[in-house]
Structures are given as structure tokens and as C-alpha cells.
Amino acid sequence: MLERTEWEVVLTLAEELHFGRTAERLHLAPSQVSRVVKSLERRVGAALFVRSSRSVALTSIGARLVRDLAPHVRGIEDAVRNAMESGRSPRGTLRVAFVGAAAGQQLLKAAALFGGRHPGCEVRIHEAQVHDGVPRLLAGEVDVLITVLPVRGVRVGPVLLSEPQLLAVPPRHPLAGRRSVTREVYGDHPVVRLPDTMPEESRLHRVPAETPAGRPVRRGPQGSTFAEILTLVASGQGVFPVGEHAARFYPRPDVSYVPVADAPPVDWAPVWLETNESGALRAFVECAAETAS
């Protein structure tokens, strides 16, 4: 069996190849490092390091010992770290934002499970709009955001909801009442534009620049909130692709919904900044995944 000091000395000296720097890193005296190495070499029955007045080098036996020992030490450290994290109940406040009713439903289910498991951590719920959700996350105003994918430059959690796309149109629109349409209709009818503050990849995923046949998508007016977008649709100024949940959560007498047969699904997931990751955040994301629809 190796004592912790012994494996720390061997692995650190193998990195530094210098007794003084090894001692400094481990907060030991150089003489202590030398005694540990000599004692271990006696037990092994062979030299682990070749020392001279100018250099230190691993022997072949020493290199093999380091190679065999390193993964086990990492495993021990990981096990201790995992136990410490499991033993610490998340504390403080976690700021969670959502964009849209579907995300809000996912958030409520996750918050209920999280609150039961971690009563010492408060979840503060914030509603974000399509134009400010990601900017608020990037500005550090919220810790985690449940929104539509894709979002680049952030950590992305598991998909909580994946739903087909529908096209929101006025009830008297030529497309209303059809069993389905394709994205080719975006070249025939103006499409309400998402706000420029949304990530470009998210905007293009929902409303591409061209139809599948390569025709330019007709640009309609820009909406800043989802309610504003639906109002622009109702007023006849454009059509707009939405997730299937919109027909349930946003029923309006002045808006009809038609399936878009060839559109990719709308995926919702939690996203957060890597620099803002914490035990509480990871625990919340786990709860969100467990309660996903």
C-alpha cells in the first residue's frame, strides 16, 4: 500500500523532475521528498529516478509506476470529489428564466422536483421574451434559461421538449384550413421576422433565408414579443412558424394554426454559461431532465 504522501511525491516529481519544485508544490522540505523517494525505492527494489547534480529523470520502472498509478489516483480524487458534491445540498438562490409557455411548464415541473430535493436553495422564476432571453443570460442576469435551440456559445442541457412546427396565419388567409403546408410558402407570403437580438442561428433555424427551392423568404415586419408576433399575424401583416404548443397555450379567434410538414422540430432545453455553472445549477438541470415531457 502507498500512503498519500508517497503517491503525491512520485507523481509530482515525475512532472517537475526537480526536488525543490516538488517540495514547494507539496509544501514539504526537499529533504522530506528525498526520504520518501528513497524509502519507496527500497520497497520496490529498484531505482525510480536517476538523479545528478543537474537533472532528475525517470527510470523505466519509475515511468511504468507513474503510468500505472496515475489513473488510480485520479479515480480516488474523482470519488472523493463526487462524494463531497453529493453531500452538499445546494444553497442560496438560483435564477431561472423561460421563454414561452411551453418552457414555463417545463420550468414549473423542474422547480417542484428541485424544491423537494433541495429546500435550502430558492428558485427565482423570471419570464423572458424572445428578444431578451439570451442577452439576459449572457449579461449574467439569470443563471439558466429554458429556451428554443439552437443557441451557440453556451452550455446546452438535455432537450426537454421536441415538437412539430405549425404556421400561424389569419383565419381568412389562403393557407388557413389546409391540412398542411411546406416551407415553400415562405416565398409566397411575408413571414414575421424575429428580433435581431435573438441569436442568428436560432432565427435561421425557425425562419431560413431561403425556401427549400432556393427562393428568398419574403420578409414581413419584426416582432419583439410572442404576443406582438401573433398580433402582427392576426392583422394580416405576415405568417409565422411556431411550436405545436402555441395552439394549446395561445388560442386566439384571430389566429389559425396549420402544420408545416417539412419543418424541423422545435427543441426546448436549458442553457447556461459555463463560467456560471454550479452544483445547484447542475442539480436543477437534472431535475428538468427527469420531469421532461
Rank of each mutant, 00 (worst) to 15 (best):
P135D: 12
A101E: 13
G115K: 02
F114T: 06
V142E: 11
H126A: 08
E127I: 06
Q106R: 02
A103Y: 07
L138V: 15
H131S: 15
A139E: 15
A110W: 03
G116K: 02
D143Y: 11
V151F: 06
R136Q: 14
F114P: 00
E127L: 11
D132M: 13
R152V: 00
K109G: 11
L138P: 00
I146L: 15
F98N: 03
F114A: 08
A128D: 04
C121E: 05
L145M: 10
Q106C: 14
R152L: 13
L108A: 14
I125F: 03
D143A: 02
R124S: 11
V99K: 02
R152W: 13
Q129S: 09
E141Q: 13
K109R: 15
P135H: 12
L107Y: 12
V134I: 14
A112V: 10
L137K: 10
L145D: 14
R152Q: 12
T147Y: 06
R136G: 08
A128M: 13
A139K: 08
A101K: 06
H126K: 06
P135A: 11
V99Y: 00
L138S: 07
I125R: 01
T147D: 15
T147E: 08
V99M: 06
R136K: 13
A110F: 09
E122K: 01
G116T: 09
G104Y: 06
G116N: 08
G100Y: 00
A139G: 09
E141P: 03
H131C: 10
D143E: 07
T147G: 06
L137M: 08
V134Q: 02
V144E: 05
Q106N: 11
E141K: 12
G115Y: 04
